[in-house]
């Protein structure tokens, strides 16, 4: 099992965002669906330790998540947030920054191709990209670290139909890579079925 969650709970502002949630997430592509407020984004943040649960336990590859060094864990289990938030500069600057953190060679062109972007994107200023392009630059930046697991938070929520189809096609390609697992959060059950080997439903 890639991740195992046992009775996980997390409170924010005196309210339980996640309560007694248990699930197993195997390797491969898992789509998580549920109504808004179900704690889907919170779940992803817990998986790469941007937050820690108040109750319960999470393990990754059989070891408690807390036993991993958080910075190393985040390079292996990479989270792409719902809204793009790139560093100032070009797409290449962002890719190189991420690759350097993970001590990976910055294979810029190759990484862009994996994220479905052509190489002309390397030199483009991130502030001049559309939201869809920024979202893909975020995906490319995560891939530049050669993670074992990709956590995607609503990767197409801010996109129009054409951009959504393009991102979905890219994700379908990535799904075929045997050494990469994907955990994807979506509010759209149709999309979850299209992109996941299995669908995990979160209660409201």
């Amino acid at each position: 099992m890639l991740f195992e969650l046992r009775n996980v709970g997390l409170d924010r502002g005196g309210r339980a965002v996640l309560d007694r949630f248990s699930a197993g997430i195997p390797a491969g592509a898992t789509a998580i669906v549920g109504p808004s407020g179900a704690g889907k984004s919170t779940l992803l943040r817990l998986l790469n330790r941007l937050a820690d649960p108040d109750r319960g336990g999470i393990s990754y590859r059989g070891r408690p998540l807390g036993a991993y060094e958080p910075l190393a864990l985040r390079r292996e289990v990479s989270l792409v947030p719902q809204l793009p938030a790139l560093l100032e500069g070009t797409v290449e600057t962002n890719l190189r920054y991420a690759a350097e953190l993970a001590a990976e060679a910055p294979a810029v062109e190759q990484t862009l191709a994996r994220a479905g972007l052509d190489r002309s994107f390397a030199g483009r200023d991130v502030t001049k990209l559309s939201v869809g392009e920024q979202q893909r630059a975020m995906l490319a930046r995560a891939l530049a670290q050669r993670p074992a697991v990709l956590l995607l938070d609503e990767p197409t929520s801010a996109l129009d139909h054409a951009a959504r189809d393009a991102v979905e096609a890219t994700l379908a390609e990535l799904r075929r890579e045997s050494d990469l697992s994907i955990v994807l959060v979506s509010h759209d059950p149709e999309q979850a079925r299209r992109l996941g080997d299995r669908v995990l439903e979160m209660p409201a």
């Binding site: 985040r74 947030p81 938030a85 100032e88 993970a102």
Partner: peptide, 20 residues
């Protein structure tokens, strides 16, 4: 906040994420 968390999510240290 969003940019800092996104940078932390790449495995940057707090210092690196807060540098700008």
């Amino acid at each position: 906040r969003a940019r800092i968390e996104a940078t932390l999510a790449l495995g940057a240290t707090a210092r690196e994420a807060a540098a700008p």
